[in-house]
Structure formats: structure tokens, C-alpha cells
Design a protein around this nucleic acid. Structure first.
Lengths: 300, 300
DNA sequence: AAAATGTTTTTTCCCGATAAAAGACATTAC
DNA sequence: GTAATGTCTTTTATCGGGAAAAAACATTTT
């Protein structure tokens, strides 16, 4: 087994959901762009759909025969890429108790534990190293730097620097820039979420990321834009294992975002700066308060 | 051939240079730390040195029998790690004419061209991607973003942000901090270089890097410290292929550094800021002026 | 008993091979 | 003649294996 066909399985599942909406499927290249895969994969999907009686396929004709049933879908866990599987396993370990700074990381052990080859683990660790949580010793093991208070402070320091600059750049964008439309859309979504916060508070994460990424993009600086990956990763996993006060937290954040959006729309640099600072400050406090006190740097 | 023994060969060569200085070599663990390799490698080195009549080795006794001759050394090109070889090849292509933005990068082709396995090339590209010059298309090729004017501007924007902050932090360090001693040493070396600039101008690069890294370390922020890797890499390769006005450039930079050092020692935030800005501005101009005008972003 | 040397085990680094997926080329349909 | 489908080729993602290097363990020396 050299490569799993998760790309195919994931695209197949997504394609199944398209079946509900139409009587017939579009052309192969069109499906390809829609699903983000090559025609080769599209054709495998169509082949299976024909086989299982979901569609009748004859050249350009792809008629939907029946609605998809639960058993038509591939199991969720088979649609994840290896990288995602490794990342999840690794993050679980990292945020679990006992993952102290200075600990060494063993590629072979990780690979065996997760049940994958060492190459994939190596590649993952190299990719992951840019998050500043691990470090390589040449010709030797990786060292865990740990998800410590120091890490959170260093991360937020950069975040604040970058976001203040991006927000200022955003406010200075011309009236006819497309970003104002995006911002309006985000504002509407924030208002909707605010009005139903009691039941939908867990949808905030995703909205949060889209909002901040929009702002960072205004910097027109790849290093700033890319840095948001670090923040997104940390927030994603950290809050996944730390649900304390989630509703309360998100409710506050939504209101801060709305104030921030209003400041951006005012295009007044002073107001933008103030609203941005206020939100970043509470984001920092939230992150810091959720790091257990015992989880300090233990490094020599 | 699964792994070259460049670690051994490189350490062997470095160990040969130690032979000139002493009558006998220290213990195995001591040699290991000195050369930065494991005892296993140290013992291979000693074994060969005994074999070639360089030393007499009997347990704790490692007596030097003769001075090393040129033919005792392994050829320089055999001491480079695969990663270094790939990096050099890749950078040569990148900075050569015809490497335009938007071009795709083919792992297999690169691997064949350099004469290495695909795994090593993949790992290199993943590591290299943090420099912001290439980007991965999921399940597909890498895309070259190109060493363009835009790249240089984005790079220097971050550099300036980080260095101004680090310099301010540096100046605020307590009197008894060890950094002041390091700074004094660097100042002396700068003065020496300044006085012999006509013949030693090409030694500036290395001094430059040590100076800026010292300053960045004062930020106590891993993201700032790590970012200097990007700058160092760009400067290293860029100037290696662009020697125009090198002497003139370095002469100016040394003087700017000396002014910058004086400002830091004054611990006056205003002076530090001014000296830092001045140096960064000329560094930016130098970098920009050396990017050919034709080398613009061509991306769709 | 601390630190060295001698020996064995484990891990890292890297290659070649193979299935999945992408991409290129040839052919057909509208 | 443009855009689809059909077919073939190339590239990517991943594994297992093997030599180099590190690390762990055992034994000796001072």
C-alpha cells in the first residue's frame, strides 16, 4: 500500500452531495474544477456512481437515477489525507498532559504509533517546524519546545504587530476596492451569528478566521498573510481541547469584531487602531488564561 | 547507496586541522563535542587516522605521529550534506535568468538533474517553502513565485519592523547583560575591518550576519529570531551572484554599523531608532537596486 | 566512582519502487 | 472549430529497506 485514495473518496463524497441538487451532472472538466481534482479522479468517481446505480453515464450524458443514501458515502475517516491524520495525532500528544518542553521527538516511534511510514512523519515535522513549537537537532532528534506561556506571548506579539499594520492598510484601501464588499458580507454574518449566539456559538471559529484573514490580506505581504497559518493552527487545536467558557468568549469576540468592522468602515486610523487593539488584547488574555500555569518552560 | 558519509568526512577534515595544534588528541566524548558528532563517528575518524599513520591509537592514548598532508583530506565536495547540495543547485536555477514567476517546479526533474532521490528534493522544497519564494499546489506541483521586486519589498518591510523592535529591546537591556560584551567585541571587529576594508571587504557578510543576529536575539521572540534565516539566505545567495560595487557597499555598511553600535551603547531610544532606520534604508535600497527591472511578477 | 573505552541497539537519512492522481495527447461529438 | 471524451504518460505521495550516525548499554581503566 503506497498511497491511499483519499482524494478520490473525499471528492466522491462531495460529489454525492451535488446529486441532490441536479438532474444531471456537468462535463468532466467542469466537475474537476468544482471538486478541485483532476479529470482522472472525476472519471473514477463517475465510474463508481454508474456502478452503484446512482447515475446513468453515457459520454456527455450523466443522468441522476436516484438520491444518494447514507451507505453510498465513504466513511469520513477514509477521506482524510495522511498529513491530516499525522497532524491530529501529533497535536493530541502535544496538548496532552506530560508534553513538557525539552522532550525529544522520535520519528520512528511516532510513525509506528500512528501506523504510517517514516517519510510522511518526517515531512510533517519539517512542515510543522515553522510553527515554532519544535526544533531539529542536526542528524539527530527533534526537540519539543512546548506550548508554553512564552510561546503564547511571542505568538501574540507578532500577531499584534502584523494585524495593526494590516488593519491600517485595510482602512486606507480605496472606496472601490472589492474588500469592502467582503467586509459587508462578513458584517451581515456576524450580525446573524450575534442574534443566534445561544445556539450557534460554535460556528464562531470559522467566521473569526475568515475575518482576520481578510484583514491580513490587505497588508499585501506574504509573510504577514502566511503568519496567520500559525495563529489559525494554534487556535484551532487549542480551543478544540479547551471548551471552557466557549460561549461567553465567542459572544464577546463577536461584539468586538462588529466594533472593529465599524471602525474599519469609518476609515478613521485612530478608531481602527483602538478597536483592533481592544480585540487583540482580549484575544491574548483569553489565550493566556487557558494555558495551565504548570505548563511553563522547563528547558535547561 | 542509501546515505552518504559526509558527516564523517567533514568531521575527519576538521579533526585533521586539530592535529597541527597538539601532540595528542583528547578523549572520545570530548572530541565528539568538539566536532559536533557522536562517538561512533569519532571512532571511525580515529580508526582511519590510525590506518593512515597519522596517529598511534591505543585506548586513551592518541599520539600524533605526523602533520596532515593535503592528500589526507577528503575532497571538499564530499563533505557537503545532501541538503546543501540541493539548496545550491536550486538557488542557482532560481537566481539565473529565465526563472520567472509562475513557473512550475517538478520534483522528479529536479531530483534527476541533481542526481538525488525524490524524497530529499521534496524535503528540501518543504523546508524552503517558508522563505516565501515557492508555493505548493495540493496533490500537484510547486509554483515559483520568483525573486521579484515585490518579494524584496515584502521581505524588507518585515525586516524593518522586526529590527526596529529588536534594537529598541536591545537598548533597554540592563547594564550587566552579557550582550554588551558581545557588542563590544563586534565593535572591535568592525573597526579592524574598517581599517583594512580595501583587502578584507569580502569578510563583511559574515560579520553583518553576526551583528544583526545579536540584535534580533534581544527581541526574545522566536519568530523574529527565525525570520532572520530568511534574510540571511536571501542575502547570502543574492550577493554571491551579484558582486557589483561590493567593496563600496560594504564600506558604507560598516560605517553604518559603527554608528548603529554607538547609538545602541548610548541607550537613547531616539538615537537607536534613527541609526537603525538609516542602515535599514540603505540595505533596502542596495537590495532593490540589484534586482533587474525585467524581473517583475508575471503571475496571472 | 567517575570517566573513559568497547559493544550493541536504535534512529536518522536517503534511495528505489509502486499505486494514486495529475497532466498531456489523440479522438470524437456537437 | 471548440469543447468534450477516451487513452496514454508523467508526476506525486507513500512505503519498506539499508547504510550512516547517534544513542544506549556493558566493561574497563584510572
Amino acid at each position: 500500500m503506497s498511497k491511499s485514495n483519499n482524494v478520490y473518496k473525499d471528492a466522491f463524497n462531495r460529489c454525492l452531495r451535488l446529486l441532490d441538487e441536479t438532474k444531471s451532472l456537468p462535463s468532466e472538466p467542469e466537475l474537476g474544477t468544482l471538486l478541485g481534482v483532476s479529470r482522472t479522479t472525476v472519471r473514477s468517481i463517475l465510474a463508481r456512481m454508474e456502478e452503484t446505480g446512482l447515475i446513468a453515464w453515457n459520454k456527455r450524458n450523466k443522468t441522476v437515477l436516484r438520491a444518494p443514501r447514507p451507505e453510498d458515502f465513504f466513511p469520513e475517516e477514509e477521506t482524510d489525507s495522511l498529513a491530516e491524520i499525522i497532524e491530529r495525532s501529533f497535536m493530541r500528544r502535544l496538548l496532552a498532559e506530560g508534553a513538557e518542553a525539552g522532550m525529544q521527538i522520535n520519528e520512528l516511534e511516532l510513525a509506528r504509533e500512528i501506523g504510517v511510514g517514516t517519510t510522511s512523519v518526517r515531512e510533517f515535522l519539517i512542515r510543522f517546524s515553522r510553527f515554532g513549537l519544535i526544533e531539529k537537532r542536526r542528524n539527530s532528534h527533534w526537540v519539543l519546545k512546548g506550548f508554553t506561556r512564552a510561546f503564547a506571548l511571542e505568538l501574540t506579539e507578532i500577531r499584534e504587530m502584523f494585524e495593526l499594520r494590516s488593519a491600517a492598510a485595510f482602512a486606507a484601501l480605496p472606496e472601490d476596492s472589492a474588500v469592502w464588499v467582503d467586509l459587508d458580507m462578513l458584517e451581515v454574518q456576524h450580525r446573524q451569528l450575534a442574534s443566534e449566539i445561544a445556539t450557534r456559538f460554535n460556528e464562531f471559529s470559522e467566521l473569526d478566521e475568515r475575518f482576520h484573514r481578510l484583514i491580513h490580506r490587505a497588508s499585501h505581504n506574504r509573510f504577514i498573510v502566511d503568519f496567520y497559518d500559525v495563529i489559525a493552527m494554534i487556535f484551532h487545536y487549542h480551543y478544540q481541547w479547551n471548551k471552557a467558557e466557549e460561549r461567553q468568549r465567542n459572544e464577546v469576540a463577536v461584539q468586538e469584531h462588529l466594533a472593529y468592522i465599524a471602525a474599519l468602515k469609518s476609515r478613521d486610523p485612530g478608531k481602527v487602531d483602538a478597536a483592533c487593539r481592544k480585540h487583540l488584547k482580549s484575544a491574548r488574555l483569553t489565550l493566556l488564561s487557558s494555558i495551565p500555569e504548570g505548563r511553563q518552560a522547563q528547558l535547561a
